[in-house]
Design a protein around this nucleic acid. Structure first.
Lengths: 325, 325
DNA sequence: ATGAAAGCGCTAACAG
DNA sequence: CTGTTAGCGCTTTCAT
């Protein structure tokens, strides 16, 4: 493969001139610039990105670290994040931690080694990892890590309010709120707190239960939900994430509980699958494209060493479906 | 950040010795090796990957190019592929083409520029792109591109046979087979051909229809299916991909068609969501983990310039659900 | 406006 | 075994 010296020789100029001509940097005589470009094309010359990255000390790569891209919400997030990163000239590296903590610190290593210009992270992290991240161009998605690390999240407080209002209007008297437990403080927990607060204020019985562990497989989620439904048989309303909402629907059918007559289910996330399956789950939709865009914009600022805010909140909205009335 | 020279100075040795000590290459006196390692750690030294990549002419990055990671099948594939690549020391770059052809050639550029050591591709490609790929470490997933480019795919012929047998046994007389149309020859088309051949041989009426375009959004898929169901109202069996199968279920309900009594639906792919939603779709499952592992193994061989086969076929298997009897 | 030259930080070849 | 040295291909001064 031709290198810059081959082009310089063929064009009868110095390599500096070739570099300037091809990068539109510095001064190059107009005609000469054309000639150099033509010759570069003839030689099928591609500047070695490896060399450019090395000399410029940036890789053009951004890492996205998430629990499991096969979960609909994360898959959607990655899609839009990659799209936005591409728009501003970055390539996207993915890392599915699948609950393996080492993968997070490995990705931090990549930043230190220069392989990554920045990172968007949405997984559990340890105290040490938070310390390391403080000096790095990192944006946290959903997790409250430290004041030095900007966080982008949905307006989960509003989400909790919408859910509470809906369950109340649906006449529920005995609501189960189902969420995952994380090692790292997740902003989404506010949706649970807020929903619970409002419901209890109205004299509605609330049972908040946790699915233990940030990373789970579907069969395990179903099993957990099945057990909870056995334990709390008088439940007439459920508030949980979309994936879990479908598991609840499945379990309800198995038990002969008719939804929405006997049981209302309110989902969270607004995954596309909630719209294409009957019944459509009533759900509170996060604005994934905007979440992704915001993460990328904030990260770009961090990389450019510009000032960024500590928190960014993205609105949510209710999507009516057939699991409430 | 400390560089190799700082470590060498602090340890009172030459940089060559540091390099050998840290990489376990060549000879270094045992005690000295320990000392160098200790000092490197004290200085919090991380070798610049940018420099190492540059000098070794490999990036350690593999690109995965697919239509849209938010689709369940691709999301699952990416998950397992990333996992397998990580096992053998590669990082994973994602590229969602979303139907934009330029993104494919951009990724090819990355290989030429050295940013990518190899690529797994599962999108439409042009003739020119195929030509370019012939000399590159590329594995095609599902697409028949050229004899120089190894392909990994499910055993779709067997898949078509399983579907045909099932629809026949279910007593269907009028089957619709629904598939997407691609610009590039997709091996999965064989499942349609084979299913059709067998059904017609048994005197069953078959209508094969296409969803036009390789990349589509859910609402558009629903609209297409709705139209097809209007056009072919006497259909009593459908064979299509899982996502489309759910759209068919939805449309059937809207029309008061009872599944499986009046209409049998056989899905394809075996997405996890087909197991967690009621009714579970009867589907022919691809072995995504094995597909991903095979792609990665074959790619590793290609990168190492070892011989590889032209085609690799992965078994499929039937998952019974509630959309057939 | 442009050629020559100095690195970037590392690996690998080489002489000792 | 180990220190020195020669690049890798590019960008970026720096004289001219």
């Amino acid at each position: 493969m031709a290198n810059i010296r081959d082009v310089a020789r063929a064009a009868g100029v110095g390599i500096g001139t070739v570099s300037r001509a091809l990068n539109d940097s510095g001064y190059v005589e107009a005609g000469k610039k054309e000639k150099i470009r033509r010759i570069a094309k003839e030689l099928n010359y591609r500047p070695s990105e490896l060399s450019r990255s090395f000399v410029q000390k940036k890789s053009g790569l951004v890492g996205i670290v998430l629990p499991d891209v096969a979960f609909p919400f994360y898959g959607a997030f990655l899609k839009y994040a990659e799209l936005e990163l591409n728009h501003i000239g970055y390539k996207t590296l993915v890392c599915n931690t699948l609950g393996v903590q080492k993968r997070v610190s490995d990705t931090l290593d990549l930043i230190e080694a220069g392989s990554l210009d920045g990172m968007i992270i949405n997984t559990d992290v340890t105290r040490e990892e938070i310390e390391r991240m403080k000096g790095m161009p990192v944006v946290s998605f959903e997790r409250v890590l430290a004041k030095e690390i900007p966080m982008v999240a949905s307006d989960h407080i509003k989400g909790g309010q919408i859910a509470a209002k809906l369950l109340k209007e649906n006449g529920c008297k005995n609501v189960m709120i189902l969420g995952a437990r994380f090692a790292t403080k997740v902003h989404a927990e506010n949706r649970i707190k807020e929903c619970r607060r409002i419901l209890e204020q109205s004299g509605i019985q609330v049972t908040a239960v946790e699915i233990n562990g940030a990373f789970l497989s579907y069969p395990f989620i179903e099993e957990m939900i099945s057990q909870y439904l056995d334990m709390y048989s008088r439940i007439d309303g459920i508030f949980t994430e979309d994936v879990e909402a479908y598991c609840c629907l499945m379990q309800a059918k198995k038990r002969g509980i008719y939804v929405p007559r006997d049981l209302k289910i309110v989902g969270y996330d607004g995954n596309e699958m909630t719209r294409m399956i009957d019944p459509q789950v009533t759900t509170i939709a996060q604005d994934v494209p905007l979440l992704a865009r915001t993460c990328v914009e904030v990260l770009a600022k961090k990389i450019a060493k510009e000032k960024v805010d500590a928190h960014y909140y993205i609105p949510v909205k209710l999507l009516q479906g057939g699991t409430t009335v």
